[in-house]
């Protein structure tokens, strides 16, 4: 698979795989239960394109204990997976940002895991710090969104999304610093990236917005395709492309994230714009 020789594409696929595993692990407990109670009933025929309100309400009304138990289980699974995801994310970040010769030294899964383990704690710290950063971004986004939303209603959502994107970019830059320096101190990362961010702020802003906008448009197109597929009656022939489109949507988002990581790295570390991962696609 020549395309996976490009580190951006490879990283996107790995991010996508990680997300799929996360979705699978978190959804499994409730899906197993639903399989047991729905598989032989009429309700299984009312799950397409989305579960009908009656199916959902009957589940919530008659299995509320299971639902509450699942919420707790899913929260625990999310927390557990947070550690796993932080671990593997470190490895994927290294794949994206290490220089050519350093990257060549990752020859096996063992090397990949060894590299991940070196910066795992740093990524965990950023993951916890992310709660604060996203919270602040949401708070500021809602305040500014409330103000601008009065001018044009749609602006409220745009402003909130912009602040969340800024938060996400900042967190990526912190992770980039940790992955590239192997220094797991969050304080050092915050201090050392401050100057670089202020110097290249406008380029970081425009670059991240551009990449996100392109990803958003592609996801939107895929969404419309998904919508068209879901409008049809259920059949295996419809089901398969639906799954493909859904996974393409996830991959597009992951590709956008990888491009942004690569772009942010090139701005913060090298001072030049390079989002596509060099000439390896060719």
């Amino acid at each position: 698979m020549r395309i996976f020789k490009n580190r951006v594409v490879l990283a996107s696929a790995l991010f996508g795989l990680l997300d799929f595993i996360q979705g699978f692990v978190i959804a499994s407990p409730i899906l197993i239960y639903l399989r047991i109670i729905y598989e032989n009933t009429d309700s299984s025929l009312h799950l397409w394109p989305l579960p009908s309100i009656d199916v959902l309400s009957d589940f919530l009304l008659n299995h509320s204990d299971v639902f509450i138990f699942y919420i707790i289980t899913a929260s625990v699974l999310y927390l557990v997976f947070f550690f796993v995801k932080s671990f593997f994310s470190g490895g994927i970040y290294r794949l994206l940002i290490l220089e050519e010769e350093d990257r060549r030294s990752i020859k096996s899964a063992g090397d990949f895991l060894k590299g991940s383990s070196e910066i795992w704690i740093g990524f965990l710290k950023v993951g916890i710090f992310a709660v604060l950063v996203y919270g602040l971004a949401l708070f500021l986004g809602m305040i500014f969104g409330e103000f601008f939303g009065r001018l044009v209603g749609f602006l409220k959502i745009v402003i909130i999304a912009l602040f969340l994107l800024l938060a996400s970019s900042y967190l990526q830059i912190l992770k980039i610093h940790i992955a590239s320096s192997s220094d797991i101190s969050l304080g050092t990362a915050i201090k050392e990236t401050r100057g670089k961010i202020s110097k290249g702020f406008m380029r970081i802003l425009t670059g991240n917005i551009s990449v996100s906008l392109v990803a958003f448009v592609v996801v939107l197109i895929l969404w419309f395709i998904l919508r068209a597929l879901k409008s049809a009656d259920w059949s295996i022939i419809i089901m398969i492309p639906t799954i493909v489109v859904q996974q393409l949507m996830v991959f597009t988002v992951c590709l956008g994230q990888s491009l942004r990581i690569n772009f942010n790295y090139s701005i913060v570390k090298k001072g030049e714009e390079n989002a596509l991962g060099g000439d390896e696609l060719g």
Binding site: F15, G16, D19, F20, Q22, G23, F24, I26, A27, I30, L31, L34, R35, Y38, E39, S44, L45, L47, W48, L50, P51, S89, Y134, S168, W234, I236, M239, T242, I243, Q246, Q247, M249, V250, V253, C254, Q257
Partner: peptide, 23 residues
């Protein structure tokens, strides 16, 4: 069974997609 698998893929996709946004 296949109906349920279809629903299960849909359910996993929702979590997967949200997870990919907040990478």
């Amino acid at each position: 069974v296949v109906r349920m698998i279809s629903f299960e893929w849909d359910s996993i996709f929702i979590i997967e997609f949200l997870a990919s946004i907040f990478l």
